[in-house]
Design a protein around this nucleic acid. Structure first.
Lengths: 212, 212
DNA sequence: CTAGATTCGTGAATCTTTTCACAAGTGTGA
DNA sequence: TCACACTTGTGAAAAGATTCACGAATCTAG
């Protein structure tokens, strides 16, 4: 148990995965062992137990984990027991796709504003929202209590908008732009870098090719 | 230097990043030191040198790395010195967004077919391609020489399509479905899991909250 | 040609993450 | 009640990744 010590990023990704496994599980009062959870993820029983042990000990020896309880605990650990107020910055294809992604709302992310610098897009309706001009951005962050942004603008504009967001009080950034953002360390940034994923894949593929 | 030993995944992601830095660099014959490259990425000079050393030693002591040459080498290492024939499986928002992503074509990924199980989508034109019914899938893989698929279907359908793809001879999968695919180890899978990224972010955010 | 300023490549040291292994609970059935 | 089959939680060991530190090249200038 360690609430203060640093938790490996890989542990967090696995927790997320365990939660998803538990959700596709319909035995309300049932239990699950680390062994079973490991089989569903792609890991080992020891890893599951170690991951969970960072946050307390909520299993019963000889029996396993209570499905409901573990689910609730994981949701709380991952910060999913509340809603997050989100703005979409950049109303291009990728941003809008995420905006309409069902899991997005389902997991407590509430999109309360959309911004785009392209005058042709400003004013368009997307669901219940209207695309705004970025000059409004700072005001909107305060008025709408925006905590988190999805940054889906071209690489050239990304650093500037990230800076403005942090300045305005945004607490975290999901970054789709293919650059490393420079922000103060208190502001977490998660990068979703499609180019990088594709390159990792083609690397693996050409490794196979070479050894064939 | 080690062409056979296992390369850490984190090294590959950094190589991808170094390449991007080098591309936004216009001094054709110039050189760059590990120090400079590190400053652009978010890493250290030693890390840059160690990463590159896995693939040979292509710097000059006292001088640094030749920009052009390093660029070419990185492209080759990452398998970007050729085109990859790709099929998009699942013509939903996310799949199409990636399909139209400019970096996608620019890096040598050529989309040669689109599939979707929804009869309402089958037959629609997307760019130069027509959305096909998945019953065609195996034939198309052979005829069009498809090496790689972008799997952007709902979670329920993902494992089945992955299995069929592998069976038909597909060599790699970029997986957007939020499940771990079960495929033989020779077939590399890269996961782009938006739910997981969001959860990592809300975890980090609520950590901050707690300590505040 | 020599001295001095750079900068790479790489083994060794350090730090991090995963795996192992087992004591300590828990439930079951005779 | 007792023996037995399970399964957790966790230090300790092993494996993996990053950082350090320094010898060996390379270039420049005098």
């Amino acid at each position: 148990m360690s609430l203060t010590k640093k938790i490996p990023a890989s542990t967090i990704r696995r927790l997320s995965h365990y939660l998803r496994s538990l959700e596709g599980f319909e035995e309300p009062g049932g239990t699950v062992s680390s062994e079973e959870l490991a089989a569903r993820g792609q890991t080992t029983a020891a890893q599951v137990r170690k991951d969970l042990s960072h946050f307390g000990s909520f299993g019963k020896r000889g029996l396993g984990y209570q499905v409901d309880e573990l689910r609730t605990r994981l949701r709380r650990i991952l910060g999913l027991d509340r809603t997050w107020r989100v703005a979409l910055v950049g109303a291009g294809r990728i941003g809008l796709a995420l905006f309409e992604y069902p899991a997005f709302r389902a997991r407590g992310y509430e999109c309360v504003a959309i911004f785009d610098a392209d005058p042709k897009k400003v004013g368009l309706e997307r669901g219940k929202l209207v695309v705004r001009d970025p000059s409004d951005f700072e005001d909107a962050v305060r008025e709408l209590d925006i905590e988190l942004i999805i940054l889906a603008v071209p690489a050239e504009a990304a650093q500037e908008m990230a800076g403005r967001a942090v300045e305005a009080g945004v607490k975290g950034i999901l970054n789709f732009a293919p650059i490393r953002l420079n922000v103060p360390p208190r502001v977490p940034v998660e990068d979703v870098n499609l180019v990088m994923e594709l390159e990792a894949l083609s690397f693996a593929l050409s490794q196979n090719e070479r050894s064939a």
